[in-house]
């Protein structure tokens, strides 16, 4: 298929003024891509290690509980909650609701705040239960 490189292009990310709705939209893709790669790899490693034996599981647990592993874990859990909340917002928007500018902006902000709060809550719970 040949394509005319001089064809008119619709304006892309760079020319728009950033707002929460736009940030959340692109974050949904970024967090989704992160979960689909790093998150899926961690999930597969965890299950394959548990199926392989004690030594394999010890290797996984060593990585997962290291400072680097916890850093990845916090990042993945934030990505998970952000993707979950912005995904719920997208499901509502798929119905055709929530497109009024102020409503749209409000719920975009809620997903950002909610994801941080849920991540903090999860890790407080994890550390609290291990005290």
């Amino acid at each position: 298929m040949s394509r005319n490189p001089n064809r008119p292009l619709s304006p892309h990310l760079t020319i728009w003024k950033w707002g929460p709705h736009m940030a959340v939209s692109i974050l949904h893709r970024v967090t989704g891509a992160g979960l689909a790669t790093v998150g899926a790899a961690a999930l597969v490693w965890w299950l394959a290690a548990a199926a392989s034996g004690v030594d394999a599981y010890r290797t996984f647990a060593g990585w997962a509980t290291s400072p680097f592993g916890i850093f990845i874990g916090v990042g993945l859990s934030w990505a998970f909650f952000q993707h979950l909340l912005s995904g719920l917002r997208h499901l509502v928007m798929d119905i055709g609701a929530g497109f009024e500018l102020s409503t749209n902006k409000f719920w975009a902000n809620i997903t950002l705040v909610g994801a941080v709060l849920l991540t903090a809550g999860l890790w407080l719970l994890i550390f609290w239960s291990h005290l």
Binding site: A40, A41, L43, V44, L47, A48, A50, A51, S52
Partner: peptide, 12 residues
């Protein structure tokens, strides 16, 4: 990846 993860759960 999906097959490996599913196989692991089945094995356990």
């Amino acid at each position: 990846g999906g097959t490996l993860a599913i196989f692991s759960v089945l094995r356990i």
